[in-house]
Structure formats: C-alpha cells, structure tokens
C-alpha cells in the first residue's frame, strides 16, 4: 500500500538547530527520500510564499497566504510504499519534524486499479 506522510512542522524549528545538528537533520530527510520504499517526496518553500485560490460563481479569488492558518504549517511530504500501517507509522516517526514540535499525518493513498506502470508492456 502507498501511504502519504504529510509533514506539519513548527515554523523555525528546523532553522533554529545549530549547524552540525541541522546538517544531520537534513541528512535524515535525504535518507528517507532515498529509502527504496519512498515513491515520491517534496519539500515546499516557506508558508510565506503560499497563495490560495478559490473559485466562486465562476470568479477566481486569489489571496495571499496558506489555506489554513495553523500553528504548524504543511511543509512537505513523502509517499512510501509500505506493507501495512505499522510500517508507515514507523517511517513517519523517523521524520525529524515529528520530534521538533511538529506532527506527521499518515494517510493511505487511493490505489488506482488499472494500468500499474504500463510502460513495461511496450
């Protein structure tokens, strides 16, 4: 099964680390991205760069800032291929944001039943 681990980090928590710890922490993120179970991953630019779009009655409303004004901000994600929820939770607990005052939301990804990587048939 595929699980998305959505990373909500405490703003500034990563930057506040001393140099050596920051590097080690960055290495942990890289290691997870390079884990063979990691299907995809992404890191977002800081929340100050966010723009929110809504369409009401055909009219586009664009506002500065994130959709939800929360203490922790959505900052990135990994999608892991894991055997079950326990394996996914174990991976999630290794994401540094989880111990730096943030939280990781783990959600199963809907499996698309058709074409599993159809490229191989060619």
């Amino acid at each position: 099964m595929k699980y998305a681990t959505l990373i909500y980090s405490k703003p500034g928590s990563h930057e506040a680390l001393p140099d050596a710890e920051y590097k080690a922490m960055f290495g942990e993120y890289m290691a997870l991205a390079n884990d063979p179970r990691c299907v995809s991953s992404g890191q977002l630019e800081p929340v100050e760069t966010a723009t929110t779009v809504r369409v009401q009655d055909g009219e586009t409303l664009t506002t500065d800032g994130p959709y939800a004004d929360t203490k922790e901000v959505f900052g990135g994600y990994y999608v892991f291929e894991a055997g079950d929820l326990d394996e996914a939770l174990e991976l999630a607990s290794r994401i540094p944001a989880a111990r730096l005052g943030g939280a990781i939301e783990v959600r199963p990804v809907v499996e698309q039943p058709s074409e599993v990587r159809s490229g191989v048939e060619r």
Binding site: M1, Y3, A82, G83, D84, L85, D86, V106, R107, P108
Partner: peptide, 14 residues
C-alpha cells in the same frame, strides 16, 4: 481495512 492496520502481533520492540 483502508488504512492497512495490520493483523499481526507487533514486533518485539513495539
């Protein structure tokens, strides 16, 4: 079912 909560006895460390 949907979240894949395992049907298993947890590993020793858990």
């Amino acid at each position: 079912k949907t979240a894949g909560i395992p049907f298993a006895v947890p590993a020793d460390h858990k």
